[in-house]
Design a protein around this nucleic acid. Structure first.
Lengths: 111, 111
DNA sequence: CTGGATCCTAGATGATACTG
DNA sequence: CAGTATCATCTAGGATCCAG
C-alpha cells in the first residue's frame, strides 16, 4: 500500500493510472510528445473533446506537474502553449507503448 | 478516429485505456501475471477493493478477452480460477512498464 | 467460496452559453 | 483565443446483505 498526497494506492500501477488514467489524459499527452501545442490546436487534434473537459484535464495535468502552461501575450487574443515538463517527458516511453498496444489491438483482434 | 465494437476512439492510446483503464483493472492484471488466482486470493491481494467492484471488473475483463475464468467444482464450495488469456499476456510488458513508472514516481517525486 | 442483488455517492464527462 | 460558468448526465465504484 502506497500513500501519496494523502491518497492510498494498492499497487504501483494504480499510482500511474491515477496520474494518466481517464478518457483523455493519454490522448492529450500523446499529442504533446512531438511539440508544444496551443489550446485550440489540441482541440482540433482531438475533435470529440469538449472545451470544458479539455480545460479540466489540462488543469489536473498541470497540478500533477506533468505539463506546463506558458502564456505569450497578456491582452486578447491570448496565446498559450502547453508542453511536457521534464517529469512529463519520463512518460514518453510509456505513452508510446500504450499507443502501440492500442494499435496492435485495432489491427489484430477487434473490428 | 478508430471504431471498435460500435464505440469511437480518438487515438490508439484511448483504445488501450478503454480496455485497461479505471482504478482496478491494472491491479488485477498485475496480480495475474505471475500465476492464476482465485477470487479470494485476488481480494486479499488487493485489500481495499469491494466484492461487487472486483466482480464487475473481472466480468468486463472476461468480456474483453483479457482474462479467462475456470471453474473446478460444481457444488459449493466453488473453486474458480482467473488467468490471463493469450491476448491478455500481450499486455504483460505494458503492465510492468506502468508499474515501474508508478514505482519511479513514488520514490523520486511525491511524498 | 463465489459473487449476484440492491441501493447509493462521488467524480468524470458532456452541452451550451458567455467573458477577458 | 482561451478559457469559465452553469446545468445535466453518465458511470465507476462503494456498502451491505444474501444465495447457490
Amino acid at each position: 500500500m502506497h500513500l501519496i498526497k494523502g491518497k492510498e494506492y494498492p499497487c504501483h500501477s494504480s499510482v500511474t493510472m491515477a496520474l494518466i488514467g481517464g478518457k483523455w489524459k493519454t490522448v492529450i499527452l500523446f499529442h504533446l510528445i512531438e511539440k508544444p501545442l496551443r489550446y485550440n490546436e489540441l482541440r482540433k487534434g482531438m475533435q470529440t473533446v469538449t472545451e470544458r473537459t479539455l480545460s479540466l484535464q489540462l488543469k489536473t495535468l498541470q497540478e500533477d506537474g506533468i505539463i506546463k502552461r506558458k502564456v505569450f501575450s497578456k491582452k486578447p487574443p491570448l496565446k498559450v502553449e502547453y508542453s511536457l515538463t521534464e517529469f512529463g517527458k519520463t512518460l514518453i516511453p510509456l505513452l508510446t507503448s500504450i499507443a502501440n498496444w492500442g494499435d496492435y489491438v485495432t489491427t489484430k483482434f477487434l473490428k
